[in-house]
Amino acid sequence: MPTQNGNNMSVIRTEGLTKVYNPDQVPVHALNGVDLTIEKGEFTAIVGPSGSGKTTLLNIIGGLDEPTGGKAFIRGTDISTLSDRELINFRLNHIGFVFQSFNLIPVLTALENVSFIMQMQGRPAKECREKSIELLEEVGLKDKINKRPSELSGGQQQRVAVARALASKPDFVLADEPTANLDSVSTAELLDMMAELNEVEDMTFIFSTHDQRVIDRARRVITLVDGKIDSDEERTVDSG
């Protein structure tokens, strides 16, 4: 796999990232040369109006979409050169995902959903179970391990999704508008939990969001406008 040079490897680095939809018909420039570096342990929110390119950026650095131009490095690996199979494997082992909603496999329990990722990695069944229980305990759902998604509230489902995202021991977690369908109490609980994981375990979180409550908790806020970085602001946030 192609890797970037240097010893101080960033978790994510993009160089002149562009994405054009419908290039042959009516071209839509979703990203216009995005240069971005995210280091380990960051708690970053990518914000911007609808159509500014937040989700496209997240999809490309998550290895779900290919850039039209530029490069995206994850831990030094240029993911735009990976084949489909290599990308799936890369996502499994290096990236945790939390989506807006309906994150979980409906026919599996909370425990099985978390364990599923580790089983895909080929880890022993006993280890998968023990680690899943530990993760669900960490996200405050010890008493819900045998519940299916339909038996959990939206906030609880998102917490299971976070536990699942962490199960593969990823380099970072991408969360695409994770609080979009949550009430304020569930949002606060989810953000508290993620902030704690960030601080205690030094886990890197990158959110795309419109939600001011998320933006208020982020230590770095990158604002995209028309596919370009309009501002990149580091802040001190009161974790209490």
Binding site: L64, R85, I88, L92, I105, M120, R164
Partner: peptide, 12 residues
């Protein structure tokens, strides 16, 4: 659902 599964690393 399949989209989510493939995204999180489930092989095709």
């Amino acid at each position: 659902e399949f989209g989510v599964m493939i995204s999180v690393g489930t092989s095709r």
